[in-house]
Write a protein that binds this DNA or RNA. Structure first.
Lengths: 344, 344
DNA sequence: TTGAAAGCGATACCAA
DNA sequence: TTGGTATCGCTTTCAA
């Protein structure tokens, strides 16, 4: 650790608009008019300049809290972050959304409320008085949480994940679509007895459950004799995958749907190391269409997921903020289709 | 899209502590005392209950802006997010840090200031009057930005990345360590002419430049005749990798350091498809020790990066917030060592 | 034990 | 064109 001598003297206190007014020799009102380009009043050019100069000299920055307190509302969009890291797919969507919202002049803020759940978390969020809340995890919110947020003045409450919650708008990302697409593909290719990898990592079940459920449902409604789904818990480790591969033949399965491409890679490698031929002895399909799937040999079949454009959602949020009267809307936004390569 | 009829009637206005006071039949002061468990004053038990009941009935949530305005300070730690998504390594570190800070009773908020740069961004952050700012990208801040933040009352300004900036504390993550480790390893294994993959993706050069620089430096100071470093630009696509592989033999290189494991995988696959033996004809080493490296054949050698514990940093931040007097400290926190597997 | 009131910083109405 | 001032919601000192 390197110590660098402190060069700045004792902090002057933080400059306020009153300081700017004093230095410029005008009233605080005038400062406000000038700095906000108030169109209702005309301020003379010399005064404008004096105010701007004073503000620059003092390094004045307006106080967002004071401003929104006075205004009675803010343009803050709160996006609670969940602990589970999002993949590249969701990450890109998030970034796009954020960018689009800031284009619409919203201040997007991510707030991690680690450890809390439901109403507690909602209360913590509500203290910030956001104009909109976009929550990725509906279950960690609940109808009570939605009520708390709305009571605190939030005009729009959206959930973004695989679940919805009463009272909130929903961008429903129905993971069952993914499982269904995988099931139809595998069945069409003559596979009957299908294994479903279920990650044991905590937090992931919110995403994995619907996928398996969709797989189950599609296999069930296909009415093909002998068709079945077997859940295979798997940790994100080589050992776990090796253990699964070791008992693969005893399971009597013909195919495996692997939650996502990373788990698919893990499983495929373990099966190959066990001498099991892919896709002959075991068809493998993943999900999310990651780059790595194309680099595997055989190339990995996968379910490609399509999320809506962040811009569209940003406009939707804006619309709801401006007209909160309408009831909650549910948008079904996840599309899934199979990219067939060599592993299935 | 499904429309659900709006069940809630017109929003009542957001309840304030005055509303709670009115309903409980006490003064606002008493409400504040009760809800904040003020130890300086004793409030009778019946009054406490009346206040709590009233607050619950109204769904009262305190107004953070008003509170911090009155208090003159907040406990908000601002973490500006960069557009480039962070990998699992940095992501884990970030999560840990966030958690540790919230344990210390800070409100951690991520704020994306997309599009702005330097002072503009700093001003936007300063409006929120955070008590501390942890910026991952020093270059998008600059000494001026640091000044703006400090003037606005920030007690601690940290940069977290590969660069530092004057006036701010730094958790320096010196990527040159990574390149150095890779170079020493490859040289020790008898490789002389080394290629360095440089991602062409914008934003990544902040991380890739130092790694290549470290590689260069280590190769240079080794004083081994014939040792050289050749930069190889590469996009994150199969085509780009295939093009590189096609001209590999004409490059006359013996080894390649691939920025990180993902690019290593991309390159390795392309080389293998071109019939180039690994590691015989081309030694490959990546970085970040991702799971996928262990799943490749040959198994991927990699540079493992060790970041400090989030808890430690959280305590450091807390210390600086409590005692901002001391000058900025520079902590060198990145450790790198080689995990030798089969590809080198 | 409780209440009245000042004041944090910025804005917008009304007067001058 | 500019200034005085009330106000947003909350905390805290001082009085009662």
């Amino acid at each position: 650790m390197v110590q660098i001598p402190n060069q700045q003297p004792a902090q002057r206190s933080v400059p306020t608009s009153a300081d700017v007014a004093r230095l410029a020799g005008v009233s605080r009102a005038t400062v406000s008019y000038v700095l906000n380009n108030a169109s209702a009043v005309r301020i003379s050019e010399p005064t404008r300049r004096r105010v701007h100069d004073a503000a620059r000299e003092l390094g004045y920055v307006p106080h967002a809290a004071a401003r929104s307190l006075r205004a009675g509302h803010s343009r803050m969009v709160l996006m609670p972050t969940s602990e589970i890291p999002m993949g590249p797919l969701f990450g890109r969507f998030f970034n796009e959304l954020q960018w689009a919202l800031s284009r619409l002049d919203y201040t997007v803020v991510q707030y991690a409320s680690l450890g809390m759940t439901g109403e507690d978390a909602a209360r913590a969020w509500a203290e910030l008085r956001p104009v909109a809340v976009l929550a990725p995890d509906a279950s960690a919110l609940g109808p009570r949480g939605v009520t708390v947020l709305k009571r605190s003045g939030a005009k729009a409450v959206f959930t973004l994940g695989p679940q919805r919650v009463e009272g909130a708008h929903a961008l429903l990302m129905d993971g069952r679509r993914v499982g269904e697409a995988a099931a139809l593909h595998l069945l069409a290719r003559g596979r009957r007895r299908i294994g479903a990898i279920v990650p044991t990592e905590p937090g992931l079940e919110i995403f994995s459950r619907p996928r398996v459920e969709g797989l189950r449902r599609a296999v069930g409604t296909a009415h093909i004799t002998g068709a079945s789904v077997t859940e295979l818990p798997l940790a994100h480790t080589e050992e776990s995958a090796a253990a699964l591969a070791a008992r693969w033949r005893s399971l009597g399965l013909e195919a495996v749907f692997a939650y996502n491409d990373e788990y698919a890679m893990l499983v495929m490698r373990a099966l190959q190391d066990e001498g099991i031929a892919i896709p002959e002895e075991a068809a493998v399909i993943g999900s999310d269409d990651l780059m790595l799937g194309r680099l595997l040999r055989p190339r990995l079949s996968t379910v490609r997921i399509e999320l809506p454009s962040g811009r569209g959602l940003a406009e939707l949020v804006d619309r709801v903020v401006r007209d909160p009267g309408a009831g909650p809307e549910v948008h079904d936004v996840l599309a899934a289709d199979v990219v067939h390569r060599e592993s299935s």
